[in-house]
Design a binder for these strands. Sequence first.
DNA 1: CGCATTCGGTAACATTTGTTATCGCTTGTA
DNA 2: TACAAGCGATAACAAATGTTACCGAATGCG
Lengths: 191, 191
Amino acid sequence: MLFHFKDKFPQLTPYWDKYLEFQKRVEVTAKTVLLGEGKISGHYIFVEKGCLRAAFNNNGNDKTVQFFFEKDGLTSFESFLKNTPSLFTIETIEPSIIYLLPKTHVNNLMAELSREPDFLNIILEVSAERQLHYMHEFVSFIRDTPEQRYQNLLNEKPHIIQRVPQHYIASYLGISRVHLSRIKSSLARKK
Amino acid sequence: MLFHFKDKFPQLTPYWDKYLEFQKRVEVTAKTVLLGEGKISGHYIFVEKGCLRAAFNNNGNDKTVQFFFEKDGLTSFESFLKNTPSLFTIETIEPSIIYLLPKTHVNNLMAELSREPDFLNIILEVSAERQLHYMHEFVSFIRDTPEQRYQNLLNEKPHIIQRVPQHYIASYLGISRVHLSRIKSSLARKK
DNA sequence: CGCATTCGGTAACATTTGTTATCGCTTGTA
DNA sequence: TACAAGCGATAACAAATGTTACCGAATGCG
């Protein structure tokens, strides 16, 4: 779940701030697991500083699903919503500063927010955005070659490529580390 | 946008029925285009009988994104929401009976629905479902081989494989028609 | 009926991608 | 400092997948 509540919906700032006191600030090293695959998500996670990824283990192969950076908020959506074991591990890539808001408070916050007249529209907008995000990823797999997918990432989200170790990006693109390396050198040759 | 309003949320039936009179019933042959790629979506589409697909043209290659059957409701979500050109064509696969509800009425219906106390939760549930649908498709591309994706489809949505021409399924799986044919005969040999 | 069109199977060959192994560079740490 | 571990480039080979072409069956239509 990817919210940018404060920046995108300033009218909600008072709500958000009210729950600041319930957030637990933690500083963690790189590769710290914030939520293990199979565990039930119990917090909303807000990235103050650093960089995280959501990933899962597939027969010993580590597969990255998404990256998160400063000001991103997230949970393992399905797990958080339905109280089911998380399909993903959430772990830091860099040393990071994280705020954790326990689920009970998230629920209270939601209940309060639902009285805000704009809330329905905000929810619709946020939901639509997330839906379109995954839809575009999905369509890209049907439509594009791995090389094109890498170029798209380079054009649309260069910060990911700059900040994230390459083998994570390879698994995110659905290809092997070796092949991503080949794609890069092939693109360098073309120029 | 995939709603099963009537079946899943019986409390909304009166609203739905009230707008029945504004729906236009059409009977169309196979391969009828209901919404062209690049056009702006102006209707909510409900499938009474038959089978549709959403697809797009990629350098002359036809790529299928999703299939729809009886009781599915749909629009080109992004186009409908933002009044932007649709990324997808929506067309019939079989001769079909379709109900079309013009956008203005959809908006009115939404406005009325938003007064229903359950509506926020319903919207959340529907949105979450759709988000998870696309997320699972996306994860499947990262995780699974084409052969596994075909088997998943066979296990989870056999009606698609039974009803839809094979070359549409191939493009939906992100592979060539020839390769899907290979996968099928390889699976047949294994058994 | 006869014909064109659509659809799916198969083969041969080309290209892409994965796997394994090796190397060098960097970084963290004992 | 020295050593191990992580990371990325590259090569050689294997496997997966795409492309093109051809065939035959089914279907729709004159």
